[in-house]
Nucleic acid binder design. Structure first.
Length: 426
RNA sequence: GUGGAUGUAGCUUAGUUGGUUAAAGCGCCGGUUUGUGGCACCGGAGACCGUGGGUUCGAGUCCCAUCUUCCACCCCA
């Protein structure tokens, strides 16, 4: 197929046969978030490039090599959002939400864009659901969003998933820890792999995450962040754990999880799935207390998480999780002749305005072909409509599941369908 | 960006040491006395064999390049 007729590398079409599944996931997410008081916010798909450079961090891979950046016709440098936190923070500051009643709780759903090499669970255009909470410094807030993340995963049927938490401290303790880590790894620099040698200067914490066996061996005895937390951060982390215990949420403390975005402070966490390949993080989040201020807003704490919708879908598919049944056509009218087709238009319009999914032949096919079609689309009932039925004002409704027929008055179709549907529920 | 695998009808595949009009199943459309689906039978449409070069009298089959998809690294959701 010619290149122009194919979707761009790393992008995905969601076809009618699976779109309802995505809608299910998305609506469950929004629904669950609202139970915790999070209301949806919708921010632009693109922002001034600076918004991401300043917030995501100019040393991160995302900013350095993964952004879709272009100059618009007005000479502005524009970037398609690689994530939704930065734009959300910009928005709540710009519109003064952070000057109103605190905490501000918002959630979002939308496409994100990163120029990466696609693989399982990783696309160039992907979709995130996430929440942000502004103005809450208490560990109860951290625990609350973790509970929300867990519940929303459970709501869509993801239960076999592990929660890992860590604290990377405030900038002060992180700085101290970074130095200690550097001292430790410098002693073993010869044994480290090439990428880790590079990481030593860029981001020593990443070495802890390396999958190279030799690096893993060395990292085993490396100092842990948790030993370098200041009193305030240690107490905060302790509080988070206590709240999680109180909520009955199971977790493991993993001092090696490090989020890749610069803005994180204190609590970081991930929900990890064992069912979707190498890109196993389904949800990632944490606290970012300095971000609002650095964006030019008031000095208030903030925290949030994001999950990748496509990864949620992968998890559900790979674990054969059930999806709710899709809506079916309530009544399909098979027509005979032009008169009947016109009458079907009239009847279907009325049924649809009463809330029924109704359809009839618009391809001018024969009766048999129409019945076959009704069967294929899974129509619950069919009705043959010809001149006889129009003249008598009566027709037979056929239940496609068991073949039973019932005679109905055309003028009472809507009521009859309602009765039949009620019966089939019991 | 690095590495490995892949690419034949809408889908899943067959295609012998390169040799005439590239097969099959599923799906799609139609038919089996013209007012009734699922089963069966019959018929039909549908493929520039990913793309571009090259070798050859001749290439889906061999060589090179390129792109896509998949998987892993890096990194992230």
């Amino acid at each position: 197929m010619a290149e122009i007729n194919r979707a761009v590398k790393g992008t995905n079409d969601i076809l009618p046969d699976s779109s309802a599944k995505y809608t299910f996931i998305e609506s469950k997410m929004l629904e669950t978030a609202s139970l915790y008081g999070f209301r949806e916010i919708r921010v632009p798909t693109f922002e001034h490039t600076e918004v991401f450079v300043k917030n995501v961090g100019d040393t991160t891979d995302i900013v350095q090599k993964e952004m879709y950046t272009f100059t618009d016709k007005g000479g502005r440098s524009i970037t398609l959002r690689p994530e939704l936190t930065a734009g959300t923070v910009r928005s709540v500051i710009e519109h003064g939400l952070v000057n109103g009643a605190l905490p501000v709780k918002v959630c979002y759903l939308g496409g994100c864009y990163r120029y990466e090499k696609p693989q399982a669970g990783r696309l160039r255009e992907f979709h995130q659901f996430g929440v942000e909470c502004f103005g809450a410094a208490s560990p109860a807030a951290d625990a609350e969003i973790i509970c929300l993340a867990k519940q929303s995963l459970n709501e869509i049927g993801i239960n076999d998933i592990s929660l890992e938490i860590n604290s990377i401290g405030c900038p002060d303790c992180r700085n101290e820890y970074g130095k200690a880590l550097k001292r430790y790894f410098e002693k073993n620099i010869d044994k480290l792999c090439d990428t880790c040698k590079d990481r030593l200067n860029r981001n020593p914490m990443r070495i802890l995450d390396c999958k190279n066996p030799e690096c893993k061996e060395i990292a085993k005895d490396a100092p842990t962040v948790l030993d370098y937390l200041c009193d305030d951060c240690a107490e905060h982390f302790d509080g988070v754990k206590k709240h999680l215990d109180a909520a009955g949420v199971k977790y493991t403390v993993n001092p090696r999880i490090v989020r890749g975005l610069d803005y994180y402070t204190k609590t970081v966490f991930e929900f990890v799935s064992g069912d979707i390949g190498a890109q196993s993080t389904v949800c990632g989040g944490g606290r970012y207390d300095g971000l609002v201020k650095s964006m030019g807003g008031p000095d208030i704490p903030a925290l949030g998480f994001a999950m990748g919708i496509e990864r949620l879908m992968l998890t559900l598919q790979n674990t054969n999780a059930p999806f709710p049944e899709e809506d079916k056509c309530d009544l399909y009218i098979a027509t005979l002749g032009d008169n009947a087709q016109k009458e079907a238009t009239k009847i279907c319009t009325a049924l649809r305005s009463d809330g029924y999914e109704a359809g009839f032949d618009i391809c001018n096919r024969g009766l048999k072909a129409q019945m076959k079609y009704a069967d294929k689309i899974g129509a619950l009932y069919t009705m043959v409509l010809g001149d006889n039925e129009i003249a008598s004002g009566e027709a037979k409704l056929k239940c496609m599941e068991n073949g039973e027929e019932t005679t109905v008055k055309l003028s009472e179709l809507s009521d009859t369908l309602f009765e039949l549907k009620c019966k089939s529920v019991f």
